[in-house]
């Protein structure tokens, strides 16, 4: 029989590109933040709450590597404990926005028609709102601090993510493998979640990482304005606000949390960009 297919060697995998050094550093920064967030209690040299009003703010010394703040609290310990609110809020925002946006984007992109128009007009409306301002107003009026801010950010971030998911779905929808599944009578839900979702997931995940970075900066900003965490909580944004008056006696108390916000956000951005480039190249 001439129409017989020769056994072919499985193709060797293309050698994985080496991870660029900047991305390695970004991963290290994120790893440090994660470790601090979960094991802060055992790492930190001191309790973040112990006040030493008698010494007040002091510059870095052997006893306090990053000095103390106005109430004599150890700045280094507060920064280490601050990793928790820096991590948990953005994670919840990114995961929440991702989950809602994926469902909305899949429905919008695959079903089209009225569903699509409805969801997209809502997205347009949300994109027209000045995000940070809305967050300030809602948290200021409703109260509830940190977690209200997280909830508001989830809703704000869902809108642009929905668009991204939808456009990725629109790209898959006309492919013959979707048509073939339809011709076989595969159900809509199955086509959406078994055929389309796995093919758009990598792109969505790359955007989720970026969401994390934006949420971190936004939450830190709200805390700085006094709209985030409760007063007294060790939080990087809050520390910027509390320690702004001691810039000249102990600059580290201000610069260290600021540096952490920037480093973490930049690292996540780099990782997100890198993931995106990796996934879209294929």
């Amino acid at each position: 029989m001439t129409e017989h297919v020769e056994a072919t060697q499985p193709k060797e995998r293309a050698p994985r590109d080496a991870i660029p050094p900047a991305i390695v550093i970004a991963f290290i920064v994120v790893a440090i933040v994660v470790i601090c967030a979960f094991f802060g209690g055992s790492i930190a040299p001191d309790s973040p709450f112990t006040q030493r009003l008698e010494i007040g703010d002091t510059p870095p010394s052997a006893e306090f590597p990053a000095g103390t703040d106005l109430l004599g609290r150890d700045v280094l310990s507060r920064v280490i404990h601050g990793a928790w609110t820096a991590l948990i809020g953005p994670v919840v925002v990114a995961a929440g926005a991702f989950a809602i946006a994926t469902v909305l984007g899949l429905l919008s992109g695959y079903l089209g028609g009225v569903v699509d128009s409805g969801i997209m007009r809502w997205v347009d409306f949300m994109l027209a709102l000045p995000g940070p301002l809305v967050a300030i107003v809602v948290v200021g009026v409703v109260g509830g601090g940190y977690w209200t801010a997280v909830a508001v950010l989830i809703i704000l971030f869902t809108a642009p993510d929905t668009r991204i998911v939808r456009s990725a779905v629109l790209e898959q929808r006309p492919r013959p493998y979707i048509d073939a599944a339809r011709a076989l009578g595969v159900s809509k839900t199955r086509i959406l979640f078994v055929h389309i979702l796995p093919n758009v997931l990598p792109i969505i995940l790359a955007y989720v990482v970026l969401d994390f970075a934006f949420a971190l900066v936004n939450l830190a900003g709200l805390s700085f304005l006094g709209l985030g965490v409760e007063p007294g909580t060790p939080d990087w944004g809050r520390m910027l606000f509390e320690n702004r008056t001691i810039l000249f006696t102990n600059p580290v108390a201000l610069l260290l949390p600021a540096a952490m916000v920037i480093l973490t956000a930049v690292s996540m951005n780099l990782i997100g960009d890198w993931l995106f480039a990796r996934f879209t190249r294929q």
Binding site: P176, A180, A181, L184, V186, H195, N199
Partner: peptide
């Protein structure tokens, strides 16, 4: 139906077995 473009006629994330199992399952 059998489609034209062999490069997108199969779901890139499904193995041959998975594609055929799904079709048989219908």
């Amino acid at each position: 139906m059998v489609f034209q473009d062999p490069y997108s006629t199969l779901n890139p994330r499904h193995s041959v077995r998975r594609s055929l199992t799904e079709a048989i399952g219908t």
